[in-house]
Write a protein that binds this DNA or RNA. Structure first.
Length: 127
RNA sequence: CGAGUAAGCUAGAUGAUCGCGGCUGGUGUUUGCCAGACGAGGAAAGUCCGAGCACCGUAGGGCAGAGUGCUGGAUAAUAUCCAGUGGAGGCGACUCCAAGGAAAGUGCAACAGAGAUAAACCGCGAAGUAUUUAUAUUUCGUAAGGGUGGAAAGGCGAGGUAAGAGCUCACCAACAGCUUAGGCGACUUUGCUGUUCUGUAAACCCCACUUGGUGCAAGAUAGAUCGUGAGACACAUGUGGCUGCUCGUCACGUCUCCUGGUUAUCGCUUGAGCCACAUGGCAACGUAUGGCCUAGAUAGAUGAUCACCCAAGACAGAACUCGGCUUACAGGCUUGGCUCGCUAU
RNA sequence: GGCCCCUUGGUCAAGCGGUUAAGACACCGCCCUUUCACGGCGGUAACAGCAGUUCAAAUCUGCUAGGGGUCA
């Protein structure tokens, strides 16, 4: 899957300034409407979370989790996931449910009924 | 059997589904799709040393500054490594050491102590004086003993003396000069003569040797765009913004060049490389032959789910590249290794 | 990723290798006052950690940890 990444520092700053935020204990979701067709997503993992191994792991898990929701997410947004310290201890299942909860709460999902497990649809629609 | 010591190795395994990175091949060609093999470490870490590479500087040399500091060797080089010398620790195997010079000069040595680089508080002794005739006091001699200190004038014994003292002698220790033997050398060793000297150079310093600076965000190329400056052309009661109008106020067009930033590509992985075997060397390491190609991302690639085994998986993620050092680390394994203790034969 | 700097009571800080580590604010106790404040007296409390050099280290040297700056 090709995730469109948020890359420039300016885009992050734009999201932080203009965007709205929803949060759980382990992460914060920041989203804003932007002049882009595809929704772009970025992950912010600070050095306070842990060393390089831990930070990489967190980023990979978030990327994988968001990739599964990707086909259902509305277009035209900048989305930033900012992590907090407890995420270093969390399992993948917890992270995945948090991501789904935040996306649905922010109203970024197309389907009204958001089931947390979207594995099958993700695979078929990707092909 | 127990305790220790030394040198090394390893760092979860297997399978299924989905997913990521560049490469190669095919297909397609504005993007992509399919297949294949490959895809983090012993420390990738800290950035403490040494190089390659790049740019800047530089007539040639010196000083200053910085660093290193037993000897010989290894290496591209080093503060690293190997082999030795000396010292310290350990019953031992063995381990550790920034290990030149204090007799070139300067500085510092608190407190304590009589005294800290030269001395006399108590003491020991002689002479004088006083009287209570064994005490006080004055002068002189002295450094054995006491106490202080990290350090008190080399140690111990004998002679010697009023008491003492390297004052003299024997033995020992240290240092200096000459000398014998061994070693490339550090150094070890033999003898003679002389001397008895505080410590500190990770205080200044002296001696010997090394050393230009900055670092891939270095730097190269390309085009577009933005800013600044200069020049040329044009020279307007114009255009635009604040504001719908008036007043007011602010900004200015085209081309060329310089400079700075942004973006893309390169730098970017074939290298003082790895493996096997032979050979020289005590060793570090060198040499010859053959074979191999083994990450190259750019918000940054190894994950998720499931099954299953065991001892239940530590520290931890390449970012230009190498050689070392240091630090972190659950465990597991190897050596006909070595040392000490106990028991048995 | 590269290159630099700094850590001293709760806070801000001084400290030429040598006494029991100077101060200020804060805190605690006592005095003063009808009471509070101000003021006075007294007290608690620290050299980031581990090694080395030295007779002696907050100070000199090395390593580690934490914090900060800078190059876009």
């Amino acid at each position: 899957m090709a995730l469109n990444g948020l890359k420039k520092n300016g885009q992050f700053v734009y999201a932080y300034k203009k965007g709205k935020a929803k949060s759980t204990k382990s992460m914060t979701l920041i989203f804003v409407r932007a002049r882009t067709y595809n929704t772009k997503v970025g992950f912010s993992v600070s050095k306070k979370i842990g060393n390089a191994v831990v930070r990489n792991k967190v980023k990979r898990r978030l990327k994988d989790s968001f990739g599964r929701y990707m086909p259902l997410v509305k277009n035209g947004y900048y989305v930033v996931f900012a992590t907090r310290k407890p995420i270093a201890e969390a399992t993948f299942a917890q992270i995945h449910s948090d991501v789904g909860y935040l996306l649905s709460k922010a109203g970024l999902l197309n389907t009204a009924t958001t089931t947390p497990v979207v594995k099958e649809t993700a695979q078929t629609s990707e092909k």
